[in-house]
Nucleic acid binder design. Structure first.
Lengths: 361, 361
DNA sequence: ATGATACATTGAACCGGTTCAAATGCGAAA
DNA sequence: TTTCGCATTTGAACCGGTTCAATGTATCAT
């Protein structure tokens, strides 16, 4: 008994007495084939149990994979990504455009050393990199193989990128507080690695030289600096603390609340806190609450980003909200549209809620 | 000037003065190649800008795609999936195992007619189908091409499947109420399509013949029937309403609250409501609240599934919780492990919280 | 009847690798 | 010196399709 091998297109073709090319057309371009031949080929296919062209073959022959990949930022594996409110919302945006194009969405898994391999081997038509951290991993795909988009940075005119107007958002936040009458501020920003202790920069130091932070964190600080300058305040006079993380679930994560405490201790004159890190909002609010500081009566707080977990916090946080899903859509669109490199900058919005008011007397 | 084409393996090979086979080995099985040759090939690759073997070629040549696909259930596109608490948790489980294996996770987009195409074209080593609805779409992949796992059904010994013990869970829910002393029940279960109005089955009708519902919904009802039978109550005496949806955000979605109202109106003697549909819990609670019925004093409620949105509901819902992420893990493991078809049944647990108590006098 | 036009079909090249049996080279053992 | 065994290297087949120029073949206007 002959071993039953899976039928391939050429088997079908010869069984139907046509050429491979015709058989191929029956499946991918039926209008090119006479109805009768079509029928004959389809019958042969059915008889041989041929379920349509194998995508593997199609792909090799210059085809598209019909899928795009998302590579979550360095510290976020795909398991965590699904539980991360920002990432799921971002991915929903990407998925939205994928669905428009009937394309699949491929997530590259994030195990330490495996990520580069995952990127090299991904069978996709393009990449969305969650952060520039993956810059070195891009190299293989950059070599003209596959287009890609970088999130949250501007890597110059030659590279696709999507980010939000971090600087402008920070300006709005600062402006809001200034307009309310605030003149004494404290700033919370991002420390990149969890093993570093919080860092406090007193008013006598130069703050522009931060230790941690991604590109967008620096942009935000620059925005605050610009806006404060309009009322004669130098960013160098403003106390700043850099803290890591602060999970949306656990405010103390990575020493976040410790850092916030450091700021509050060292900046008693501040009437408003500006939080520039997206995951630090909870740490700020919770440390403030722990100290029984009344917000916004004793202290105003402006955040950055809008994690849903904070939706029920009382008072609701006045914060800069960014169009997370729209970022995903924009990135995916760039990939599907092709064309010359684009740099998309999306606007952010100040959502004035309950955590800001005029400064205490 | 010659047009610069992307270098391929054979170019590298000839540039380095070796055979294609050797060049291939340098990248995929270095230990087979003498160090010096390795160096030569790598140099040639560098000079030509060859960034490693193209996964397309590797794939065709009998390789694995190194990714598995998840096909969300019929009515859930991938955009929605990312915003759907159950799906994200499930996907997190799948992702967990993918990361263990350094494999990618591919989501098949769910546009109506495109889904079959998405499945046919997906470059993956296996499929996880969110529901049996996709049974017909499976056909192409079933033809020996790619292994797959079905969720939430038992499709027999020849097919991989992962589900939870719906029947047992329902029995636990019913038992809990029985033990509290309840003898008069109302049941809310699932109507499949949103365009159908809620259906009420009065105590005189035969309830086993439901209109909607997936396989697991029927299992759950059967479980309740079994347990009630132990205290001499026939399921045929119990009022049942079938309602669609009830979104986790909008309790009225798809007429869900209308259906619940129907049940409450027609079953005034019921001291306990058993909700068998995962997304209907909110509809039940909200209609009950609207009527100012005090839970659990006037009415006990047991739910099925544990959407995080209900975490803050007062009183917290006594409900059957299923190991959602573990379902994802189990399904993914089956795909990676290979071997003969497996049918996995995971246990569920009754979480006794605040919505159940002894029946009112 | 003739040439032009349109359409259907085909043969062959190509996509970019992997794999394996056979060939080669080389030092050690006889 | 010859032979054997082992480690490398190679040629050729193969993975399963798509594509395109060339070849027919039927249709239509002249």
């Amino acid at each position: 008994m002959v071993k039953h091998m899976r039928a391939k297109l050429s088997d079908v073709a010869s069984a139907a007495g046509v050429s491979k090319a015709t058989a191929s057309n029956v499946f991918s371009a039926p209008q090119k084939v006479r109805p009768e031949l079509q029928r004959r080929v389809k019958e042969a296919a059915l008889a041989l149990g041929f379920a349509g062209p194998d995508p593997k073959g199609r792909l090799l022959s210059g085809g598209r994979a019909n899928a795009i990949a998302v590579v979550p930022p360095g510290d976020i594996g795909i398991t965590i990504a699904f539980r991360h409110p920002y990432m799921t919302e971002f991915l929903a945006g990407v998925a939205d455009i994928c669905e428009e194009h009937g394309a699949g969405l491929h997530l590259v898994s994030g195990i330490e050393g495996q990520k580069a391999k995952g990127i090299r081997n991904a069978l996709v038509d393009g990449f969305i990199f969650g952060s520039i951290e993956e810059a070195d991993l891009i190299e293989p795909s950059r070599r003209g193989r596959v287009p890609f988009v970088l999130m949250d940075v501007d890597a110059g005119p030659g590279v696709n990128s999507v980010r939000v107007d971090d600087r402008g958002g920070a300006r709005q936040a600062a402006r809001h507080l200034i307009d309310l009458g605030h003149r004494h501020f404290g700033i919370v920003t991002v420390l990149r690695h969890s093993h570093q202790p919080p860092v406090f920069h007193g008013p006598s130091e130069v703050h522009h030289r931060l230790i941690g932070g991604y590109h967008n964190d620096r942009e935000r600080l620059a925005g605050v600096a610009e806006e404060l300058a309009t009322v004669g305040i130098s960013i160098n006079e403003v106390p700043i603390v850099e803290v890591f993380g602060g999970s949306v679930h656990d405010p103390t994560f990575g020493g976040a609340t410790v850092g916030v405490a450091m700021l509050l201790d060292n900046a008693p004159e501040a009437t408003a806190i500006i939080t520039l890190g997206d995951t630090q909002n909870l740490a700020v609010l919770s440390e403030i609450r722990r100290r029984n500081i009344r917000v916004p009566r004793d202290l105003s707080v402006v955040g950055f980003d809008d994690p849903p977990q904070l939706a029920l916090f009382e008072p609701p946080l006045t914060t800069i909200v960014q169009p997370v899903a729209e970022k995903g859509r924009a990135a995916a669109r760039i990939l599907f549209e092709g064309g010359p490199p684009k740099q998309v900058v999306l606007p952010v919005e100040l959502a004035v809620r309950g955590s800001t008011a005029v400064p205490r007397k």
